[in-house]
Nucleic acid binder design. Structure first.
Length: 109
DNA sequence: GGTCTGACTAGGT
DNA sequence: AACCTAGCCAGAC
């Protein structure tokens, strides 16, 4: 269940991200939409960026184009790609950009 | 309270 | 398909 909170938007993001099943991916806009409005996609991205070592499958969250937008050093795009493939998700590499077939792997709650 | 920022999006070029 | 621009939301200062 989705819990709307006027504050602690982050908590909702973490909670939803945890609900993404293995082998599926979601987008920032989708998660934002489940909490408040799809327009808050930026906040979702920001929330996930703030993650440290929390047990959250942040790697299953990508942008609407099905690409990995991570710019984190500790958890690089390569790391994210590996984790996705580990879950059975096919990641195509095009010009150094990791792309995922959203139509096939998008999580639909 | 006003201002800035961002792991975003949609639309146009 | 790739690149650029403007718009949006919530939190940090």
């Amino acid at each position: 269940m989705v819990k709307k909170r006027k504050t602690n938007f982050f908590q909702a993001v973490y909670q939803l991200t945890n609900q993404i099943p293995r082998g599926k991916v979601s987008t920032y806009g989708q998660i934002a939409g489940l909490i408040t409005t799809p327009r808050a996609a930026r906040v979702v991205g920001w929330a996930l960026h703030q993650l440290d070592d929390q047990p959250i499958p942040w790697h299953r969250v990508i942008n609407s184009r099905g690409e990995i937008s991570t710019s984190c050093e500790t958890h690089s795009q390569l790391t994210q790609k590996r984790m996705l493939e580990q879950e059975g998700i096919t990641v195509r590499v095009i010009n150094g950009v990791y792309k995922i077939d959203l139509k096939k792997y998008l999580w639909q709650p």
